[in-house]
Design a protein around this nucleic acid. Structure first.
Length: 472
DNA sequence: CTATGGCACGGATT
DNA sequence: AATCCGTGCCATAG
């Protein structure tokens, strides 16, 4: 939409009409594309060659060089603007390769579509898209097949075929209609690589004794199956360890989508935070990736030629020059804002950057806007749809720094992990209150659900249905 | 009667 | 102005 906006205004834009262009909204990758287009279309705009560090030769947007520079005296974060790394972020230093094992964040539906795409016929594609869109946060399909078929005007058999493709795609168990079904699908995937002994009993239990399994009533299952209680318990342990009723959360841990609110993919990074010189406790170093390596300006020759040319051409060329100046200025402004924004974030959320989710401090965009003396919407735009890499390899959307409840959720997770006997929501709320966090009981319930933790009355000392720990 | 989940309202945030 | 988030109230399940 931004691009079309550009086209509409191309010939009428004048300096007094538009003082800024909304570069801030764009991610670095998007901006790069926009700028390249601008460079191609506007002869008055010029990209000046990039700088290189006199010491290490690394390409820079501006001096000093991030890797060679000295840290700031007071230990505050150092913020640099550096040329964007091509495509996915990768350390050039071999020793860091392992530490930077970065999994490109991807939406669940894209992930699945990539796998099943080749097997789909043209006619099935809309149906597949529909089904994927209907998956809930856990990766389950809450809708009944006949309804889906009716809604899409297709035969139920077609739905079944596509659904079966989805169910055999990577996060095992995804696309099932109930947790029970999901478990069974996962079991089948597992059966291919495991001894059939355990899987057979596990399947029976899941199929015919699902309720009792949830309540951990092993005695009853054992009685009905006429098996020793130990076997049943072993099977339950097997299920607990290897299966999860929330297939999507194995990779999409916190239930929040790894994409920005606007739905833009966070494939490319906009900044990276590391610890200067990898020194323990050292100051943070932030690299804000610039969309181009070099800077933009109005071509001096073009400007000079403007005065000598004919009346008729003056107008169009004059517009080009003005626009070029505008683009250059706006880019500069965006870079400036991004650097200051990252500076504050690095200062404010140092603990979170170095630690974990529990260390996130409450922070609002409005507050930053105030300290920076800009309008709130400026910060909103700057934050939207951007991602940053943290020292430990995590890639988080910028908006995560403003998540009001992340640290509380983390606390809830810990409380439940450490609990001796199942805590009710009320008890959890009280415990949080003692830690100084006043949270309503109802809110605890919401967080619990987000974390994929079942209610206390279904939970017992060994929770079966807790999703396995996600990569951390 | 207790613990939860659904709905929806109001205030804060964007 | 639109959206998100915490919370209170009430129905329901155990």
């Amino acid at each position: 939409m931004f691009v079309s906006h550009l086209h509409d205004n191309r010939h009428q834009i004048t300096a007094h009409l538009a003082k800024t262009m909304s570069f801030l909204t764009l991610s670095t990758a998007e901006l790069e594309a926009t700028l390249i287009k601008e460079l191609n279309d506007n002869p008055a705009l010029e990209l000046v060659e990039e700088l290189r560090c006199p010491n290490c030769g690394k390409r820079l947007y501006r001096l000093p060089c991030p890797t060679c520079a000295a840290p700031s005296a007071d230990g505050s974060p150092v913020v640099y603007l550096s040329p964007r790394e091509p495509r996915n972020y990768r350390s050039t230093e071999a020793e860091n390769d392992e530490a930077l094992d970065i999994r490109t964040p991807e939406r669940l539906d894209e992930h699945i579509l990539r796998q099943i795409g080749p097997a789909l016929t043209r006619a099935e594609r809309p149906l597949a898209a529909y089904l994927l869109a209907r998956l809930d946060d856990d990766g389950l399909l809450p809708e009944a097949i006949p309804e889906v078929a009716a809604f899409n005007h297709v035969h139920p058999r077609d739905v079944e075929r596509v659904l079966s493709l989805i169910q055999h795609a990577d996060p095992p168990g995804v696309g099932a209609q109930t947790p029970q079904e999901s478990l069974l699908i996962q079991l089948e995937c597992l059966a291919e690589v495991t001894t059939p002994l355990m899987t057979k009993l596990a399947r029976t239990i899941i199929q015919h004794h699902f309720e009792a399994l949830g309540k951990m009533d092993y005695a009853r299952i054992a009685r009905q199956l006429r098996l020793p209680r130990e076997s049943v318990e072993a099977a339950a342990r097997f299920i607990q360890r290897n299966l999860t009723p929330y297939p999507a959360r194995v990779f999409w841990g916190d239930g929040k989508h790894p994409v920005g609110n606007d739905g833009a993919a966070l494939r490319d990074l906009d900044a990276s935070i590391s610890i200067l010189n990898r020194a323990e406790g050292g100051p943070l170093m932030v690299e804000v990736f610039a969309p181009l390596s070099g800077w933009l300006r109005v071509q001096p020759e073009f400007k000079a030629a403007l005065e000598e040319c004919a009346e008729a051409e003056q107008e169009t060329w004059g517009a080009a020059v003005e626009r070029a100046a505008l683009v250059a200025k706006c880019l500069q402004q965006r870079n400036h804002t991004m650097r200051r924004l990252m500076q504050i974030i690095a200062e404010e959320q140092r603990d979170f950057i170095l630690g974990g989710d529990g260390d996130l401090r409450p922070l609002t965009r409005a507050k930053i806007a105030h300290t920076l003396g800009v309008h709130e919407s400026t910060i909103s735009r700057a934050v939207a749809g951007k991602a940053v890499a943290l020292p430990d390899g995590r890639i988080v959307p910028l908006s995560k720094f403003f998540d009001r409840s992340l640290s509380v959720r983390d606390r809830v997770r810990h409380l439940v992990n450490e609990e001796k006997s199942p805590l009710t929501d009320d008890q959890i709320a009280a415990a949080l209150g003692e830690q100084g966090l006043q949270v309503a009981r109802r809110t605890v319930a919401k967080y619990r659900k987000m974390l994929g933790i079942l209610p206390a009355n279904v939970r017992s000392r060994q929770e079966i249905f807790r999703p396995r720990p996600v990569r951390s």
